[in-house]
Amino acid sequence: MRKLLKPREREQMLGTAYAFPMGIWFTLFFTIPLGIIVLYSFLKRGLYGGVEWEFTLDAYKQMFNPSFGRVVIRTLWISVLATLGCILIAIPCGYAMAKSKYQTVLLFLIIIPFWTNSLIRIYAWISILSTEGFVNSLLIKLGLIDQGLKLIYNNGAVVLVLIYMYLPFAILPLFTTIDKFDFSLLDAARDLGASKLEAIIKVMFPNIKSGLSTAFIFTFIPIFGAYTVPLLVGGKDSTMIGNIIVDQVSKTRNWPLASAFSMVLTFISLVGVFWMLYNGKREQMQSKKTTQQSLEQNIKKHHLIRGEK
């Protein structure tokens, strides 16, 4: 006899069924490749690329090389700088958008750049920043300088273009949280004696914390793994971890080392994601506790009013 399912069970079954295609896709094209990378990082390097099936920690040992160390440190400071730049620009942008009458238009403008290939957008920056580029010729025409400045092929250009590339990823989450922020709180803070800056730091920032952490994760992780930007607008001292991975795969053909560096990237990204999840969870727990407590209190009050125990 066929067993009849309760609606709730049925829904759960359906949910699992619907998740199947997605699950298969992720297993095939995400989990398995990731597994391959993990595996390769523990194998011996093949002479002409590829790997030999022999367990070794060589790849991880090779990472502790001063020249790689410098690249890791550079990647870190460039990423931190570019992320901070993104967030510092994104906060006033998100604020202005939240307050604007033309929210949809502004949102649209932020999304438009995604319709163009990122390489083309980087080349556009090259033509803006190069020695005979837009900025330099403008400055020469205005008579401010005699000779073209060296604006490109250095770390400054890398940070600048990275900020440009990942700014929308910071603006969007910040805009959504600032949009939900109750601006009368700023009035209240001012009324109670806070200066404009104090009101923003002491009242607005704590209340848009979730947006700030999302913006940080959304920009820091991709910037940390960037390789086209340092390759195209960076100088010879702008190599980042992403470039090492590409070099090890395609030029030096040390696949285990490339895999080991990928593991480092993945690990750092995971730390970020877990931090965000933890923050979100904590806030949720707090509000859950809150509603539960107030519920219990209300029940108690109710009983009191009705003269029951």
């Binding site: 109750d182 009368s184 709180l185 009035d187 209240a188 803070a189 001012r190 009324d191 109670l192 004696g193 806070a194 200066s195 002491k202 009242v203 704590p206 209340n207």
Partner: peptide
Amino acid sequence: PDKRQSNTVFQTYALFPHLTVYENIAF
């Protein structure tokens, strides 16, 4: 506003959600 000898009770109260009652009043 922060230099005036007036304080306001707002229509929506405008309590700071990230602070406790104590900290709101101590603000």
